[in-house]
Design a protein around this nucleic acid. Sequence first.
DNA 1: TATTGTTATACTCTATAACTATA
DNA 2: TATAGTTATAGAGTATAACAATA
Lengths: 155, 155
Amino acid sequence: MSGTHVLDSLLALTQVLQADQERELDRRGLTVPRTHLLWVLFHGGPATQVQLSEALGVTPRHITTLVDALDATGLARREPHPTDRRAVLVHLTERGTTLMQAMDAEHDELGAALVAGLDPDTVEALTRGLDHVRGRLEELIAAHERAQREREDTA
Amino acid sequence: MSGTHVLDSLLALTQVLQADQERELDRRGLTVPRTHLLWVLFHGGPATQVQLSEALGVTPRHITTLVDALDATGLARREPHPTDRRAVLVHLTERGTTLMQAMDAEHDELGAALVAGLDPDTVEALTRGLDHVRGRLEELIAAHERAQREREDTA
DNA sequence: TATTGTTATACTCTATAACTATA
DNA sequence: TATAGTTATAGAGTATAACAATA
């Protein structure tokens, strides 16, 4: 039963965290997928749309739409690929870079603020607990998928 | 710096948890908002659409769409409100009830499986840590909103 | 006059399929 | 022939505004 308590605490926290994130993005006129794309460019440098589609796990078609929106708001731009005339390189504008730097800083501040008032040992234990739970979840998912595949092979 | 680690562990876990949830819902032909609506009916009993819109935090118009979809898949139905002829009461069908019972059981199983291998003290500490972090986050949000309002009042 | 739900319209996320230009 | 990106189309989440029926 205490297992359910951990999961419920986790889901409750997740929900608050997400609502906060959406508010912050909204304030800046951003959406989650658009920000994710900006983040990939910020940490990985200019990329083709196919590369972006792999990084975000969405279709190339959807990347077209996302880049269109980021271009319209002046956060990213397409430029011709230097060697492949079919492709484009998407890169952050100066405004896009500044924005991502600000968001990165906010992320660090939030991380620090969330554990204020906890002693280092507790923080350490919390991180380890979370990683343990994530490991367990990934194992469960893998086992689940294996079972699924075997069922399909039998049928 | 270790604050950021907690936040990052948390976000990583959140992402895996969410991906898993979406896969499970997809397997059953459900979506997150529709499931949320079913959950509200399961735990709160029949409700008018206005009540549902308050519970889910979406517009009454959107509830119309969600209930249409759940009606089409036989999970919920509209019935006339006994005393208010403007309103309808949305209720789960038998299939909807059975589905929610199954999902509730799966939730409990998952909660137990996630902490398998951790000793009770660690589980206890983890729950307390998560609740502490959520409390901190809610304080931060409240303070942020207070500051926002003051800024608006000044302007 | 206020409330319940719906029609009309629009934006965003997301997908598949068909197509163009280039490799 | 395969790959990069776009046009066309569609379903789902979400919103606002205008409107009907009823309170």
